[in-house]
């Protein structure tokens, strides 16, 4: 690691910058350059190697979980588990501020964090299609169709995996269009914005990030036995929500307590058995 957490916390200024983009490679380039200009650490797809190793899965599978639109052959619970691995790995990295995060779907699970500056970089169909047409030597019309389909797929993926539409601008602090801005200008704007006091890290939002990281760590462990468990954490207290039939409620609750209790950082475990899953989902997404 380039800088220890202690060092980062001394300087109480740096936000997290979470970038996502319509066009993957353009977004990656801008995120890289922002990290370079600000001297922040870049957390991107490279992380997947260590995640894959830690959980004994292939890196390709992780990339597929992040990219493939939901289809007939999608194994949803498998994909959600892989995404949980990525989320856990990523949140671990985001405990330090002064990080630019890209390509790990962070914009869909880092929510309500005051010092996370969330940027969406959009590209209109026309320009993107032109780039594809040029680089791959296909007719423009076909490239346009490809682009349109890809946008639609991304939307469907986010809705299926996180129940959010990632093309909804209200998810972001800032939406930059590469149709009106040069990439240089976009980088400049992001760096300027990162300097606003508004996006500074503070005890409150750092604690929320710690809670999120703990929750995701516990969730990854519990998902082995309870694939659709939901976990919230607050200062070492973990609340797990799981669906259960009434008869094996006690058994499951006890099992969750056993599993979660052994995880580092967990002081107290509470298990809520829920029947109305959708209501719960709606509440936790508020």
């Amino acid at each position: 690691m380039t800088s220890g957490p202690g060092a980062a916390r001394e300087v109480n200024l740096m936000p997290l910058i979470i970038v996502s983009a319509d066009d993957f490679s353009q977004g990656r380039e801008i995120a890289h350059r922002v990290a370079g200009v600000l001297g922040y650490r870049y957390v991107g797809r490279d992380l997947l190697a260590s995640v894959a190793e830690q959980h004994q899965v292939s890196q390709e599978e992780l990339v597929q979980a992040l990219e493939d639109p939901p289809g007939f052959l999608t194994r949803r619970s498998r994909r959600q588990r892989l995404l949980a691995f990525i989320e856990e790995g990523c949140l671990q990295q985001l405990q330090d501020d002064g990080v630019v995060c890209y390509g790990l779907a962070g914009h869909l699970y880092v929510r309500g964090i005051a010092h996370a500056l969330k940027v969406r970089i959009i590209t209109e169909v026309g320009q993107w299609a032109q780039a594809i047409a040029e680089s791959e030597g296909v007719p423009l019309e076909r490239a346009q169709k490809v682009v349109e389909r890809r946008k639609e797929e991304q939307k469907r993926w986010s809705q299926d995996a996180y129940n959010l539409d990632q093309s909804d601008p209200s998810l972001y602090d800032m939406v930059l269009s590469l149709d009106t801005l040069e990439p240089d200008k976009a980088v400049e704007i992001i760096c300027d914005t990162a300097g606003y006091r508004k996006f500074q890290a503070m005890t409150y939002s750092r604690k929320l990030m710690q809670d999120k990281a703990l929750a995701s760590r516990v969730r990854v462990e519990l998902m082995k036995s309870f694939p659709d468990i939901k976990v919230e954490a607050n200062d070492g207290t973990v609340v797990a929500y799981l669906q259960s039939l009434k008869k094996d409620q006690r058994k499951k609750q006890e099992a969750v307590r056993q599993l979660a209790g052994g995880i580092e950082g967990v002081r107290h475990v509470e298990v809520h058995v829920i029947r109305d899953y959708f209501g719960q989902a709606a509440q936790s997404s508020r």
Partner: peptide, 11 residues
């Protein structure tokens, strides 16, 4: 609060 110049914010 941060924008208005708070040093830190604790919940």
């Amino acid at each position: 609060a941060m924008e208005k110049g708070a040093f830190d914010f604790i919940a």
